[in-house]
Write a protein that binds this DNA or RNA. Structure first.
Length: 491
RNA sequence: GGUCGAAUGGCCGAGUGGCUAGGCAAAGCUCUGCAAAAGCUUCUACAGCGGUUCGAAUCCGCUUUCGACCUCCA
């Protein structure tokens, strides 16, 4: 059996995964900045890393999964100048900053619940770790890698890069960053506080317009962009932990700076593996606020957006995401979503079919190779599309058995049930969707109608039987006549 | 402008040198009172031009088109 391998962005190789302290695995994922409702693109990271979380658990690891909530520190403008994003929005909406952060954190959690994402072991907030951030900044200053300037503290990139490789993760050339390459066309405010344009803020002195501010040795202010993740991952996972994940757009400067901060603080690489998922695009372009092409999660689930032909369910979205490899871009389109919707239904219906299958003495089917193919797919850098392809092979097998075209032994059937349900529900984290609500009373009611229709059929009263079928279809119930009897599903 | 990446059948999307996924859509057949569901079958693609090789979607070069990052971003 192949071992679990993941693509490490830092070394740019697919490398075998082995945890620092077997069987424990520490994972840190950069969570959302809670200044707005989540959009479609925000769903990808949680879904991708949920599979990682679930698969590692399935493999027997004890996982501590940390996902932060950024409720301070991200600025509206570049160059470390400008208002805190959250504070700005709070002023606009006339509410407490923390009220706003809570509101959008809840919104984010609603999305996670809908997508059946496992809860994080720890979900730290940046605003709750100001002390840790200040301590870390002080250590970096003491170590000579940061300097104070007018109440703010900046990381000394040129100084750091004399002895360290700033830019390795994101493929930047540090000399060009130091020279300010790419900044020529931009008007950057407050660069005079910095010794070098490549330097980034660890602490910012707050002006009176900043609602969120804290005391520090340097000024009353707020922490910089990147220090929160370094401080919180360090606190909960240690100076070095196993996997750090996030979107590819965080590669630079966020993750690059995290590495620098950790190295400057403790001479340790923060993460042993860096995993980055790609973006969801709309018409080939990244979904982003600035492009005004964002579809909020709520709009997606209700279908209320000009780009949407209809509403799509959370599981359709999850399945859509999992049908592509996490490192490739994934382009949104209605036809692709509708294909995913049908594919997901096929997969989930097969699970129900499977539970009704009867084993046979002369069954010759073996699913050993299919099971192995499932593990191989995930072991090879979490290739969920190949895993799903293998699951569909099982679906065909399940349907063949159910229609009597082939037979399966009791032992093989148990194995098939175990493998299929494990991967569909436990590892991929897909779930039945209670559209109108399957329950005992509906089931009983439906059985009554099915019996009545079958009686009509037996009496060749097709007008009545077709009428029952038609009326049920109009109500969203699909009647399926199989060899083993009649079943129904809710559309 | 710099750095990096992508181009696969009607659509989505795997696949890194020979065995050429999977889903959706389409067509035919089986089953069915008729349907639906399900099964079987068919549709065999790799942007273009060169090169390497016995053999290339896969490696190399060039061209074209597109994208990401370089600024908050999942």
């Amino acid at each position: 059996m192949k071992s679990f391998k993941i693509y490490d962005t830092y070394t740019k190789n697919v490398t075998p995964f082995s945890p620092l302290n077997h069987p424990f695995v520490g994972i840190y994922i950069c969570g959302p900045t809670v200044y707005g409702h989540p959009h479609l693109g925000h769903a990808r990271g949680p879904v991708v890393f949920d599979v990682l979380h679930r698969y590692l658990k399935h493999l027997g690891y004890k996982v501590r999964f940390v996902r932060n909530v950024t409720d301070v520190g991200h600025l509206v403008n570049d160059a470390d100048e400008g208002e805190d994003k959250i504070a700005r929005k709070a002023r606009v909406e006339q509410v407490e900053p923390m009220e706003l952060a809570q509101f959008y954190t809840d919104s984010y959690h609603h999305m996670l619940d809908a997508l059946n994402v496992l809860p994080a072991s720890i979900e730290p907030r940046a605003s709750g770790h100001i002390i840790e951030q200040i301590e870390m900044i002080q250590t970096i200053i003491d170590n000579g890698f940061a300097y104070e300037s007018n109440g703010s503290v900046y990381f000394d990139v040129p100084g750091y890069s004399k002895t360290h490789d700033y830019g390795k993760l994101s493929g930047r050339v540090v000399e060009e960053l130091i020279a300010g390459a790419g900044n020529e066309a931009r008007e950057l405010e407050g660069q005079d506080e910095k010794r070098n344009p490549a330097d980034f803020a660890l602490w910012k002195k707050a002006g009176p317009e900043h609602i969120m501010q804290w005391n520090s040795p340097w000024s009353r202010g707020f922490p910089g962009w990147h220090i929160e993740c370094s401080a919180m991952s360090r606190k909960y996972l240690g100076e070095t932990f196993d996997i750090h994940g996030g979107g590819m757009d965080l590669l630079f400067p966020h993750h690059e700076s995290e590495i620098a901060q950790s190295m400057a603080c403790s001479s340790h690489q923060p993460a042993r593996y860096w995993m980055h998922h790609n973006m969801i695009t709309v018409n080939g372009q990244k979904m982003a606020k600035s492009l005004n092409n964002g579809i909020s999660i709520d709009e997606f689930f209700t279908g209320k957006h000009p780009l949407l032909e209809k509403a799509y369910s959370p599981m359709t979205l999850k399945f859509f995401i999992l049908q592509a490899h996490y490192r490739g871009t994934l382009d949104f389109s209605n036809s692709a979503l509708q294909a995913s919707e049908k594919g997901f239904n096929r997969l989930i219906t097969a699970s129900q079919t499977l539970s009704n299958i009867k084993p046979s003495q002369d069954g010759k089917i073996s699913i050993d190779s299919l099971r192995q193919a499932c593990y191989d797919a995930l072991n090879e850098d979490m290739n969920t599309p190949i895993l799903i392809a293998n699951l569909f092979e099982m679906v065909t097998l399940i349907n063949q058995i159910a229609s009597g075209q082939t037979a399966i032994s009791e032992a093989a059937l148990e194995e098939l049930k175990s493998v299929y349900n494990t991967f569909v529900f436990d590892v991929l984290g897909l779930a039945f969707e209670e559209k109108s609500g399957h329950n005992d009373r509906i089931d009983g009611l439906m059985q009554l109608l099915i019996d009545m229709r079958n009686e009509a059929k037996a009496q060749k009263n097709y007008a009545l039987s077709d009428s029952i079928r038609q009326k049920l279809a109009e109500l969203g119930f699909e009647i399926k006549d199989g060899k083993e009897g009649t079943t129904y599903s809710i559309l």
